[in-house]
Design a protein around this nucleic acid. Sequence first.
RNA 1: GGUCCGGUAGCUCAACUGGAUAGAGCUUCUGCCUUCUAAGCAGAAGGUUACAGGUUCGAGUCCUGUCCGGAUCACCA
Length: 636
Amino acid sequence: MDLEKKIVQGITEAFKKVYEADVAESDIALQPTKKDFDGDLTFVVFPFLRVSKAKPEATAEALGVYLKEHVDAIADFNVVKGFLNLVIDNGVWVDTLKSIVEDKQYGALTRRDERVMVEYSSPNTNKPLHLGHLRNNFLGHSVSRILDAAGYDVTKVNLVNDRGIHICKSMLAYQLFGNGEQPSASLKGDHLVGKYYVEFDKAYKAQIEELAKEKQAGYTSLEGVEDLADLKKSIEKKGKKEELTDLEKEQINALKEVFTYAEKQAPILLQAQDMLRKWEAGDEETIALWSKMNGWVYEGFDQSYRLMGVEFDHMYRESETYLLGKDIVEEGLEKGVFFKKEDNSVWVDLSEDGLDEKLVLRGDGTAVYMTQDMGTADLKYKDFNMEKSIYVVGNEQDYHFKVLKLIMQKLGRSYADGIYHLSYGMVDLPSGKMKSREGTVVDADDLINEMIETAEERTKEAGKIDNFTEDEAKALYRILALGALKYYLLKVDPRKRMLFNPKESIDFQGDTGVYIQYNHAKIQALLRRAEKDGIDFSTEKFAGLKELSEHEANLVAALAKLGDKISESAEDYAPSVIANFVYDVSRLYSKVYAEMPIFNEEDEAKRAFRIALSQQTARAIKIGMNLIGVEVPDRM
RNA sequence: GGUCCGGUAGCUCAACUGGAUAGAGCUUCUGCCUUCUAAGCAGAAGGUUACAGGUUCGAGUCCUGUCCGGAUCACCA
C-alpha cells in the first residue's frame, strides 16, 4: 500500500536532511504499533543509530519532527525509547476506504506469466478418505486458490495410487468373501472396497497366527507358550526399558524368525502377490475385477470431493505412470549422476549433500517409488510446462522429496528448483495414530456428515432459521459445517501435527469459521436494510469525514492489507496467513459493530462511512474465506 | 545411533521473519439484549516461551549443548 511507501520515503529524506546520511528504502521497515501505545505505525530507530550518531530518543524525535512537518499523512508522533510511533491522519483512512471501494481488483494481484502445479489429495484406491486426507485436500485446494489470487496460472492435479499390492489385497478379499456385494446407498463404493481391505487384513492375521503355531514346535524356548503375538509384544515393550533375560533374548529371536516366516508365507498374501503379477501381465480377469472395483472407488471419491468442495484440473493414475522413469535412470547413468552396483541396481550418491545413497532402480530392473516419481515429474512438465511444482504430501515423506528435488537438480531439469514439498503433520487421535487396517480412522464422509448434523442442532438451538425453506436451511448447515472444519484444519501451521478429538466436536464459538461467517451474514442483513431504506453510502457521502474511532481506523488499516496477506501466504504456501487475516478483520469489525450506531447515527457522513466500511469488510471476508475454500452465507 | 521437524497460558493456536509490557479463542468468574443478528461485546483470571549457556542496544525468534515428542534412514508406495 502506498501509505507505507510514502512514509518510508519520508524517513530516508529525513535521514538525508537531518543527518546527511543515505539510508536505503529497502532497509526501512514499519510495523503496526502495539495496542498499548499511541499511534498506527512504528519505526524502530535502533538499527540506525550508527547513521545518526545520536541517542535513540533524540534520533526518533528528530525524525518525527521532520515527518510531521513534511509528510501529509502523518498527523502526530510520539517517542518511546527507540520507537517512533506515528499517528496517521484520519483523512488517510477515509481515503483508503474510498480507494478500496473503487478498487475492482481488490484481493487479486496482477497476473504473472508463471505456471504452478499443485498436486494434492493423492488417495489410494483401496480405502475411503479419512481425516488426514481432509487436511491434505483442504491445504492443496486452498493453496491453489491463493496462488491463483497471487497471479499465478495454477493447475490442480491428483495423482491417484490405483495399483500395487495393497489394491490387490482388497480385490482378493472381495473375490474370496464378497459374494458379489455391490455398492449401495448405505455403502458407497470406496467404503465397500475399504471394507474388504480390512477383511484381507483380518484373514491375513489369522493365517499368520496359524502358521506361527505350526512353526513354534521347532523352538524349545517357545514350548508351552499360548499366545505368541502377545509374548512378542510384551518382550519388545520390556526390551525398550530394561535388560532382557537370556531366555527372553532367545525367545525374541525365535519369535522374529517364526513371524517373519509366517508373514511371508501366509497363503492369502501369496495369492495377493500372484494377483499383482497377473495384473502386471495384463490378465483379463484380474484387470476386469480391478477396473470394476476402481470404478466404484472413483464414484465414491467423486461424491466425497463434491461434499468437501474440492476439485482438480487433471488426474494422473499410477497405473499409467508406474513404468515411467527408467529412461531417466539411463540418462542419469550416462551423465554420471547415478552409478551401478555389482548386482545391477542403480543408485545415487548424495553424501556430498548431507544425505546418503539412495536406490533409484532395483537390480532386476524394476522400478521403485523414486523411479516413478522422477518419470512423473518429467511427464507433468511435458504436459503443463510449469515453473513451480507443489507437492502436498505428509511429512513422513520429507526425505523422499528432498532426494527427488536434488536428483532432478543434478539432472539439470529446468523445473527442479521450483519443486516444493508442502509437508504437513499427521492428524492424530487421542488414542494415537490412525491406522486404516485396524479400523481406527476418522472417516472423512462420516466426519463431514456429523459436522452437518451438529450445525443443524446448533442452528436450531439458536433459533436462527425462522423464515428459511428446507433447502435453504440444509444449504446453510453444510456451509457452516464445512466452514468450521476447514477453518479448524487450515488456521494451523501445516507443519505441526495436530490432535483431533472426535468426541469434542469442533467449536462454533470464538476463533472459528462460524464466527467469521456470522459477521458476514450480519453485514449482509445490514446492507439489505440500507437498500430498503434507500440510504446512499457512496464514497462522496463520506469523503470529507475527519473523525473516526480507533476501531474504525484499525479496521480500515487491516482491510488495506489484504493484498500483502495474499502475497505473503502465496510465498509461504500458508493458508493460515489468510485464515488469521479474516479472523482479525472479523474481530475488529465486531468491535466496531458493537460500539458504533449505524442506522441511529445522525451524522450522514459517519453513517455512510460505517455502511461502506461494513460492506468492504464483508467483501474482504468473502474473498479471504474463498481463498481457504470456505463459503459465506448471506443469512444465518 | 545419523538426519529432519516440532515443544509458547490448564487446552487449541498467534506473534508481521531480531523489537516495546508475548497475544487470541476455549474453559472459569463478572457485567451487557424494550434500538441495526447475543453463533456477539466489555472485563477479570491464567506465562521462567521445555532447560542451560552464548551472540547484541534488544531473543519466543539466531548459534551451541541437553531433555521431551514425532518422522525418516527399506530392492514398500
